[in-house]
Amino acid sequence: MKIILSGSLAGTLARLLLIRLDYRQYPGYPHGYISHLALGAIASALGAVAVPALLNKDFTAFTFLALAAQQFREIRNIERETLQNLEETRLEKRGKDYIEGIARTFEARNYLVMITAFLTSVAAVLGGVIGAAVVAVILIFFSLTFMTGETIGDICEVIPGEINFKGSLLRVNDIDFMSVGLPEMREKIKKEALGVMIKPKDDNARATLHDMGQRMAIAHTAAVIMGSKKDVDIPEFTPLVRKNPDTGAVALYIMPIEKDLESLILAVKRTPVLESARVRPLKTQAGRMAAD
């Protein structure tokens, strides 16, 4: 009994600590918290129960884990569907890549919880309650630090950019964005818009910034944190991220409610690097040859 209890407790605690409202801004709803906590508790119970079952040489218990895996895949579908439905009425889209990333994270976190519970139960069998506590702390620490993933600030340099116009063409430094026709709009943009340059630190980062999903994620994060003056009838104020085709650097243009460059830079830096956008050409021979 102690074994199962310590395993489930450790797993549930891990899930609780993993539900934080971070730059993904999700889940932001009380019911979202409840359902994920409940599923986390079930996952950890399953992981914990497997150990005593194995000790009793009851190997069929493992089939339950397969059942759990099936259930977690379902979570991913549910998350994806919810987010996609919400996307339709959003002014600043998250983008499909971001949604997929969030859905996958939710699935993976449940596996993490299950593994935490399983290993804690094993520790409880071998080392008693104290052993279980030590292992649980280590595993939860591991989940929190190593599973967070990279942010844009890790792979890119984010520096202030200057909003300027070449004729009617809106630019941030030397990167063109779009033609803004109305002079009064141009004046307003000149006065109130903010721009930042995002310079990749290496070729891997450049390939990541090339991904449109990643760029949408950056614009989305900036708009959520800083506010955006965009509305359905003012497409001019849509936050945009565009690339310099020669250097691979990208620039962000945004009409924030709060005109605060420092916090915008921080928001961009904290944007998570999407798993699907993460490319590593430098890991290949051809990529390394092309780099020099």
Binding site: G167, S168, M178, S179, V180, G181, L182, V232, P235, E236
Partner: peptide
């Protein structure tokens, strides 16, 4: 709900 561009 559209945007004005300038052909200059």
């Amino acid at each position: 709900d559209a945007m004005v561009h300038d052909l200059e």
